[in-house]
Simulated assay, not measured.
Amino acid sequence: MTPLVLTLNLTLSFAALAALALSLDRHHRDAFLTRAPRARARTLRLAGWAGILASLAVAVAFEGWNFGPVQWIGALTGAALLVVVLLSYRPRWLRPAALAALPLALVALPFALRG
């Protein structure tokens, strides 16, 4: 398990779980101070599930079926903890943090492909 693959998996998982959290009306209201329109909630939900599947694909592609799902569950757990902490103490920081995680994942991807 390389740290770059784990970073890639963590950032994808964090962005995905943040999107799923923001698709819920309560968390959307905490972060944006407005209700989530149906179309936005649906888009966030779709993006969240796609991100979770992408993080699984990354884990399995780089680590194989023996260790990939283990790393995936660990990354989901760590990302979920960070989402919960942000929602509890700084809900308005969740959106910028999730948007910052995506470029970080793109930066980690070429390095993970090399190693």
Rank of each mutant, 00 (worst) to 15 (best):
A54N: 11
A54P: 11
S55M: 10
S55L: 07
S55G: 11
S55E: 11
L56A: 13
A57F: 08
A57V: 10
V58C: 11
V58G: 06
A59M: 06
A59Y: 06
V60S: 05
A61C: 05
A61Y: 14
A61I: 00
A61Q: 07
A61L: 08
F62V: 06
E63C: 11
E63Y: 09
G64D: 12
G64R: 13
G64C: 10
G64I: 09
W65Y: 14
N66C: 02
N66H: 11
F67I: 08
F67R: 14
G68C: 15
P69G: 12
W72S: 10
W72P: 10
W72C: 09
W72V: 08
I73V: 14
G74T: 10
G74P: 13
G74I: 14
A75L: 07
L76E: 12
T77K: 00
T77I: 05
T77C: 12
A79F: 11
A80I: 02
A80Y: 15
A80M: 09
A80D: 04
L81Q: 07
L81A: 15
L81I: 14
L82K: 00
V83G: 01
V84D: 07
V84W: 14
V85K: 00
V85H: 00
L86H: 03
L86K: 01
L87S: 00
L87Q: 07
L87G: 01
S88L: 10
S88C: 03
Y89N: 02
R90P: 00
R90V: 05
R90D: 05
R92L: 09
R92Q: 15
R92I: 08
W93Y: 03
W93R: 07
L94S: 05
R95S: 15
R95G: 04
P96E: 08
A97W: 02
A98Q: 04
L99M: 10
L99F: 06
L99N: 09
L99H: 01
A100H: 00
A100N: 01
L102H: 01
P103F: 02
L104M: 14
A105V: 12
A105Y: 10
L106H: 03
L106M: 13
L106G: 14
L106Y: 03
L106I: 10
V107D: 06
V107N: 04
